[in-house]
Design a protein around this nucleic acid. Structure first.
Lengths: 207, 207
DNA sequence: CGCATACGACCTACCGGAAGGTAGGCAGAG
DNA sequence: CTCTGCCTACCTTCCGGTAGGTCGTATGCG
């Protein structure tokens, strides 16, 4: 039910997550939408415009999701799990096997400057939110934190993106879940089972 | 003092690490070497051949470095630190701001199959070595390991590549060192100085 | 030794196709 | 009557790759 511009952003996002900025063309995109190549220019004058729109849309989506979590979910660990579960689902059901901003970040030195700037804004948003969640989690006693919230947040972000690289490199989506779960286990306070929080179930299924 | 084929592999490696497979061309490469574009085909018939050669050369270099470490350095933690220090130096002095196989891994779904296979071989080599080192480290009591060596190795690899993504995304090479050090700190046995094993010297120098 | 041959490394010139992008037109809805 | 959304036709530039030639050196051999 989306308009063409929206579909363009959506499809472009998938293509970027698949093979990066230089890995897709207006021709690919046009074919997916069932329109002609120059029609894309009507919505996005240049490829740079399009890709920036894609990143900014992703950023907006995440920001609004963060807002929902921060307003509706008081528990820090539950917020983190919601975020992690989102990516677990995306990666395991193949609907998105990598964060598109992550792909762009890796090829960032070769990207147009404005695209790079948008990517950095995305990472900043995410990093700042994680910092808030970490601080909250320590306060709540759900997260053990021998380090400062800032450090833990960066560490967590590293684990997420590193796990995506691993899943790609080994061609095994399960690797993401496996690695991220191992990380979460270490981050929790000791003996999480005896905590005040209900835990859904065991997912640690051997790989 | 390298021959042209060697220079091509070296320069291509830098270009790939910079912007990925689709982010460089034979024209770029020719300009760097000061030769004409078609001359490259004399050494590497196709771009796929060239890139595979680059990955395989990198892989061979790492394999031989691993062999040196495993024969000459009995201490597991010291082996890990040597590996980490290598990347710290490369990233902080900007001589290589990302593992080229890592860049290729991220865009793997859009790569020629043979290139993807070479990239996976590289990751396998690295993963298997890390597994051996982890097992050795636990045996030596230098690494605390509530998880199996296999899991810890994957976790470590995740941290390395995740930290590279972070350094790129935030445009800050220091982030790599920062995050990796935080990871190493968590991985070590508590108060490593009071262990049963003699440790050569303190290398934990704060960042 | 002199000389032919062969080969490696590079060159110029060129190809078909795909890249991102432009110009201008046409149909339908407000 | 205009504006939006799409079209066809076309442009320039760059892509990876080919064909074929030149030069220098190394080798084989009478």
């Amino acid at each position: 039910m989306k308009d063409t511009a929206g579909k363009l952003i959506e499809e472009a996002g998938q293509l970027i997550a698949h093979a990066g900025y230089n890995g897709f063309s207006y021709a690919d995109l046009a074919e997916r939408l069932g329109i002609r190549k120059p029609s894309i220019h009507h919505h996005f004058p240049s490829k740079v415009d399009l890709v920036i729109a894609v990143v900014e849309q992703q950023r907006a989506a995440i920001r609004s999701q963060i807002a929902v979590l921060e307003n509706g979910e008081p528990d820090a660990m539950a917020q983190l799990l919601a975020y992690v579960d989102y990516w677990k689902r995306c990666i395991e059901d193949q609907s998105a096997t990598f964060c598109l901003a992550g792909v762009l970040a890796v090829e960032l030195p070769g990207l147009p400057l404005e695209v790079g700037a948008a990517v950095q804004r995305h990472f900043n948003d995410l990093g700042l939110w994680l910092e808030r969640v970490m601080a909250l989690g320590v306060e709540q006693g759900a997260i053990k934190l021998e380090l400062e919230p800032r450090t833990s947040a960066q560490f967590f972000q590293t684990a997420i993106y590193g796990a995506m690289v691993m899943a790609r490199a080994y061609g095994d989506p399960g690797k993401f879940t496996f690695v991220v779960d191992a990380f979460l286990a270490r981050m929790r306070t000791e003996s999480p089972g005896e905590n005040d929080l209900p835990r859904r179930s065991r997912r640690d299924r051997a790989e």
